[in-house]
Simulated assay, not measured.
Amino acid sequence: MCLIVFAWHVLPGMPVIAAANRDEFYDRPATPAGPWLDAPHVIAGRDLQGGGSWMGVSLVGCNGPRFAALTNIRAPEERRLDAPSRGALVADFLREDVTAPDYLRRIVEHGDVYNGYNLVLGDGESLYWYSNRGGADPRNGQPLERGRIYGISNGLLDAPWPKVLRTKAQFASLLCQGAPEDAYFEMLADTTRAPDVRLPETGMPIEVERMLSPVCIETPGYGTRTSTVVKLYKGMEPELHERVVQPGVVEAQ
Results as ranks from 00 to 15, higher is better:
50 G>Q: 03
39 A>Q: 07
29 P>M: 07
108 V>W: 01
11 L>W: 03
98 V>K: 08
99 T>H: 03
66 R>I: 10
88 A>F: 03
74 R>C: 11
144 L>H: 13
100 A>E: 12
130 Y>Q: 00
83 A>N: 01
116 G>I: 07
29 P>V: 04
143 P>D: 12
74 R>K: 10
73 I>D: 02
37 L>V: 08
38 D>Q: 14
23 D>S: 11
115 N>S: 09
51 G>I: 14
14 M>R: 15
152 I>Y: 06
140 N>W: 01
108 V>D: 02
117 Y>L: 05
90 V>A: 09
9 H>Y: 09
138 P>S: 10
9 H>E: 15
128 Y>I: 13
11 L>V: 15
120 V>A: 08
148 R>N: 14
148 R>F: 14
150 Y>D: 07
130 Y>L: 05
77 E>N: 07
97 D>M: 11
44 A>S: 06
124 G>I: 05
116 G>H: 10
71 T>K: 03
25 F>V: 12
71 T>C: 11
78 E>S: 06
126 S>V: 11
56 G>Q: 05
100 A>N: 09
71 T>L: 13
22 R>M: 10
41 H>D: 03
52 G>E: 00
129 W>A: 12
112 D>Q: 15
122 G>A: 11
122 G>P: 12
20 A>Q: 04
55 M>P: 03
35 P>L: 11
131 S>M: 04
92 D>P: 02
124 G>F: 05
111 G>D: 15
122 G>D: 14
38 D>S: 08
59 L>G: 05
18 A>H: 14
103 Y>I: 02
62 C>W: 12
154 N>P: 04
137 D>K: 00
126 S>R: 15
58 S>M: 08
12 P>M: 12
65 P>M: 09
35 P>T: 12
149 I>C: 14
83 A>P: 03
138 P>Q: 08
76 P>L: 00
69 A>H: 04
101 P>N: 06
54 W>G: 00
153 S>Q: 14
71 T>E: 10
41 H>P: 06
57 V>C: 14
75 A>C: 06
60 V>Y: 09
49 Q>R: 02
101 P>I: 02
79 R>A: 09
106 R>L: 04
67 F>E: 03
92 D>H: 02
32 P>N: 11
99 T>D: 02
18 A>P: 14
111 G>L: 05
58 S>I: 11
84 P>N: 01
71 T>V: 13
125 E>F: 05
63 N>Y: 02
119 L>W: 00
124 G>V: 09
35 P>E: 02
82 D>T: 07
